[in-house]
Design a protein around this nucleic acid. Structure first.
Lengths: 128, 128
DNA sequence: TCGCCAAAACTACCTTGGTAGTATTACCCT
DNA sequence: AGGGTAATACTACCAAGGTAGTTTTGGCGA
């Protein structure tokens, strides 16, 4: 059986996933294109990475027209949840307020963001 | 010169840092003790790891009484900030509300936590 | 049919984290 | 002084992420 693919991944892998998340099935060339511009990575680097990611169950490919078309197997949502929860557990004792408190102290937060946060809380409260 | 130590670290490294954060200067044995109980790691594993971490500038040691006494060089705060901001930037476009929204949807949040969150927002608003 | 070309396959190498065995050292006790 | 012992130093390995060159393959156009 397919084991749960670890949401944990490196930087390049995440960048690749992001490409796949918004340009759903994509060829190696397309992924390379989407990243390569600024990153200056070789085509083969992307191809190798995609193959490794397929081994880990993060993506899958099918062949079309003699070239591989890759597709994400894990959703952005799962990965985000995984990584966010990970930080939460590893550093903030699983407490969302602890995390938020830290972040409010250490970064700029616009009034609009505060509004949105407040709205989110209120909403959650209502949903309870 | 000593370059900015990357807050990014693996699991064991973080666990070791956590020990150092709350038992400030500690010998290898003490760190091992603090972790070893459940983890079953070899003494030398901890020693090796600490040496590697010293190379990366995460910790420093001095010798006392023929053994190394280690001390964290980066604060929990810095590391937390670093890792939290990292997730924020990499996955939530740097938007705290996006992160919170995601987390509120994907995990249990007690009423007390909601209270605390609300309080944090209000407080931040006042401080503005 | 033959060769070119693009894409995939294979191979290789480096770094870092993790894990630990073995060797060395140095102090202290008898 | 000699030996034991506890700590560090050294060495080795493995896995995964990252990076990319080289080889193979297969289809297509001349």
């Amino acid at each position: 059986m397919r084991k749960k693919p670890r949401y944990k991944m490196g930087d390049l892998q995440l960048r690749i996933m992001q490409v796949l998340w918004d340009a759903s099935p994509a060829t190696v060339a397309q992924v390379h294109e989407a990243l390569g511009a600024k990153s200056g990575l070789a085509y083969t680097t992307i191809a190798t990475m995609l193959r490794k990611m397929e081994d880990r169950g993060l993506v899958a490919h099918e062949t079309a027209d003699r070239r591989f078309v890759y597709q994400a197997l894990v959703s952005e949502s799962e990965v985000s949840r995984g990584m966010a929860n990970d930080v939460l557990e590893r550093l903030f004792e699983g407490s969302l307020p602890n995390l938020v408190s830290h972040l409010l102290r250490s970064r700029e937060v616009s009034p609009e963001e505060l509004d949105r946060l407040q709205e989110l809380i209120a909403q959650k409260r209502r949903a309870k």
